[in-house]
Amino acid sequence: MKTLQINTTQNVNINFTLASEVQRAGAFLIDNILKFAYLFFIYSVFTEATIEGWADDTWSAVALNALITLPVTFYSLYTEILMNGQTVGKKALSIKVVNIDGFKPSITDYIIRWFLRIVDFNLFFILVVYAYALGWDSYVGLILLLFLVGKCVGIVSVAISKKNQRIGDMSANTVVIYLKDTAKFSQTIMEEITDNYVPKYPNVIKLSDNDARIIKDTFTVASRTKDYKTLIKLRKKIEEVANIKAEEKSDIEFIDKVLKDYNYYTQNM
Rank of each mutant, 00 (worst) to 15 (best):
I155K: 07
Q165S: 05
V140Y: 11
L134Q: 15
V258S: 00
K249S: 10
L148C: 08
V140S: 10
T182P: 03
R213D: 09
R166P: 01
V258I: 12
A246M: 11
V198H: 08
I215H: 04
E239M: 02
N243E: 15
V140N: 07
T230M: 05
S157W: 03
G168A: 11
I232T: 15
E240L: 10
I177D: 00
K245N: 14
I155P: 11
T182M: 12
L142G: 13
L231Q: 12
I189T: 08
T188W: 02
K162Y: 04
Y178I: 04
V153T: 06
F185Q: 11
E191I: 04
V158H: 07
V158A: 03
V176T: 07
K216D: 07
I255C: 04
N164A: 02
D227T: 09
R235P: 14
D195I: 08
D211S: 03
T218K: 06
L144W: 06
E248G: 06
Y130K: 09
G141C: 01
K229M: 15
G150E: 09
F147V: 04
S250W: 06
K200H: 09
T182W: 07
G141A: 13
R213K: 14
G135A: 03
I205R: 05
K206I: 01
E253W: 06
V140K: 11
T218Q: 05
Q187D: 13
N203P: 08
T188A: 11
I215R: 02
V176C: 00
K151F: 13
F125M: 07
K184N: 15
E253N: 07
I252R: 13
F219M: 06
D137R: 08
E191N: 05
A172I: 01
F185L: 06
G135L: 01
I193E: 04
R235K: 15
D211L: 00
K233F: 14
D217H: 13
G154H: 10
Y130C: 11
V158E: 12
P199L: 04
S250G: 01
K163D: 09
V176N: 04
Q165I: 04
G135K: 05
D169I: 01
G141R: 11
E192P: 02
E240F: 14
S161T: 12
V204S: 04
S138G: 13
T230D: 03
R166H: 07
D227H: 05
F254E: 02
E239L: 00
A183C: 00
W136A: 13
S223N: 13
K206E: 03
F147N: 14
I155Q: 10
I177V: 14
F219T: 04
V241H: 02
Q187A: 11
K226Q: 11
R213C: 06
K216G: 03
V241L: 10
D211C: 08
V204C: 03
L142A: 11
V221S: 15
I143H: 01
L127F: 15
D227S: 14
K237Q: 12
R224H: 15
S161V: 01
